[in-house]
Amino acid sequence: MARTTPANHYGLAMTSDGGGISARGVRRAFGAVQAVADVDLVARPGRVTALVGPNGSGKTTLLLILAGLLTPDAGHVRVAGYDPAIRGREARARTGWMPDVFGTWDSLTAREVLTTVAAAHRMSRSDGAARAAELLDLVHLGDLADQPAHVLSRGQKQRLGLARALVHDPQVLLLDEPASGLDPRSRVDLRVLVRRLAAQGKTILVSSHVLTELDEMADDAVFLSGGRTIESRSVAGAAAERRRWRLTALDPTGLSAWLEQAGMPVVEIDPATEDDAQPGVIVELDDDTAAAALLRDAVTAGVPVVSLAPAGGVLEQAYLSLELAKGEERR
């Protein structure tokens, strides 16, 4: 199958360069419910973009629009260079979509599910069989390949779903909650696989509630709330940003006293460790350099520091601060 090479000049990603996802001013209502009100999103080839937002923020609807299954009421959409509403075929040939809840043909075996999807993508029987075997190994379902799909656990089905999205080697991957139901081992595998696919130049858009999960695989993040894009940012840039750190010491009282003296106001006691013998205190630091300096100063001053680490992931912090901003807006 002839495919356009994913262009790596990011400037072109906004236009039709045969790669990436761009959406501008996308709207979609179901009756009176405005599921997607105004979404702007750019996902570039070679990068993993996280789609973050609370339940009902329009993530799944947006992914359905990008997958070419729903018409947007308004806005521009380009997936791998094609408008899915007009050149659906071309867009679908280049898009792998993994839905959040999906059924599977229960009486078919895992292998048959994949060969069927391969045939539906116009692959020849032998190519389809080879691809199915390859993918079953990739998602570690090799030993269950000839079991009917209904005996698979939720996590195994989820992995089968991921394999299904990869059958036609798409340039663009739309993953809706791919980590849900996965055991820790599978989560690690998923992360490694997603990073590897991105390294091959694919565009990957992942939605998830598990923000720490996204933290470890995403390069960029788009925040949705109430069907709108409220922020797009790079995750990698977070090291140079002011954020919250958690600090614990053998002597919590001494730590607090020292922090006060050093002019580092304690934002709060970490609610999660409040009842512990060594409750963590949360401080806000400008960047990683500031964190290193704080640690050095504390140790020099004889404070028995046990740990200093970012409090929650970058995405979690950004998400919570956006939530906070929204709450204030409401008030």
């Binding site: 495919r3 236009t15 039709s16 045969g18 007009i86 050149r87 659906g88």
Partner: peptide, 20 residues
């Protein structure tokens, strides 16, 4: 293998772009 560079018209605005 080619890289298509196409100006993106607003959805549905161009008469060239319609469903087949």
């Amino acid at each position: 293998m080619s890289i298509e560079v196409v100006e993106v018209p607003p959805s549905g605005a161009s008469p060239r772009e319609h469903r087949r």
